[in-house]
């Protein structure tokens, strides 16, 4: 009896090891307890596999739905923008012109929101493949800062970053990480008053390359710090500033997908420092 139990336990242990390795197959077909357990294990693994397939199908349906929303809203939104533009060229009273401008601004905001949501959903569902490759962090900073130059210039804000002939190599997807850094720098520009300063600095650590984006804006309350990367979160003090509260969320998703992370430190009224850590391994 003890020998039988030992044999049963040994086979069970082997079966579980094989199931973990994905190589399990039933060995015996007779009236013994081991054979019954083997058959049940096969059935269990089959059910797990089916559930995994179902999840993959669900994902695929969500991906198509997102694609449809993105595609089908493009034409009507473009029409709204076009007609609002045409309307504003007519001979309008001041109030009518203001209302027409409001339609254009809202249509652009809606278009931006849909694009951002589509990107976020594609990132979450894995439809966008983030492919981190070794690259120069200074070059990445230069690209992202360049994209913000026009908006910064419009507010007389200088975006300063170190030009360096040395290279700091880290792993990142150059296209998507440029977008992530752009979102953070753009956010810093948005919340920094006119003639303020935004600076970007790169530091090399043993395991990570650190990019600090430092602004002289209004800062973030300590109790709000854990919320800044949440989807659709905006500070109460954001007021009428443009934005949907999705840029920092997207930035975090992208950086995390590259094996890095983001943190923020801030003092209300004294500006914020967003630190992006890009993995070197």
């Amino acid at each position: 009896m003890i020998f039988e139990n030992k044999k049963l336990l040994r086979r069970l242990n082997e079966m579980i090891d094989a199931a973990i390795a994905g190589t399990f197959s039933a060995e015996t077909y007779d009236e013994s307890l081991i054979s019954k357990i083997e058959s049940k294990m096969m059935r269990f693994l089959e059910i797990s596999r089916l559930k995994q397939d179902q999840t993959e199908n669900e994902r695929s349906r969500v991906r198509s739905l997102i694609g449809d929303i993105s595609h089908q809203t493009k034409t009507p939104l473009s029409n709204v923008t076009l007609y609002a533009g045409l309307l504003s060229e007519q001979d309008l009273t001041d109030t009518q012109a203001k209302l027409a401008r409001q339609i254009s601004v809202s249509a652009e905001a809606l278009s931006f929101l849909i694009q951002s949501l589509v990107k976020a959903s594609r990132l979450e569902s894995g439809a966008i493949k983030i492919e981190p490759k070794p690259g120069d962090v200074y070059a990445l900073v230069e690209t992202a800062a360049g994209l913000c130059a026009a908006n910064a210039a419009a507010k007389n804000i200088s975006v300063e970053y170190e030009q360096n002939t040395a290279h700091i190599t880290a792993l990142f997807d150059s296209r998507w990480c440029a977008e992530a850094l752009f979102n953070i720098i753009e956010n810093a520009v948005k919340y920094t008053p006119e003639r303020g300063k935004v600076s970007v600095a790169v530091t090399e650590y043993e395991m990570f390359a650190r990019v600090d984006i430092c602004d002289t804006g209004r800062g973030i309350r300590e109790q709000d710090l854990p919320k800044v990367f949440e989807r659709f979160w905006r500070a109460e003090s954001s007021g009428d500033s443009p934005g949907a509260g999705i840029g920092l969320y997207l930035a975090r998703e992208i950086i995390t997908s590259c094996g890095g992370y983001i943190k923020v430190s801030s003092k209300e009224g004294k500006g914020s420092v967003f630190s992006v850590f890009l993995s070197k391994v």
């Binding site: 650590y205 395991m207 990570f208 995390t256 992370y261 943190k263 850590f277 993995s279």
Partner: peptide, 27 residues
């Protein structure tokens, strides 16, 4: 410290590991 914290966070995400961290440092 930042290297170690980064790797703790990245490991948690990569290996779906539940982590509870005790610290006095809000940052």
């Amino acid at each position: 410290g930042m290297d170690v914290m980064g790797l703790l966070k990245v490991s948690g995400e990569k290996f779906a590991q539940t982590i509870v961290l005790i610290t006095h440092n809000p940052e």
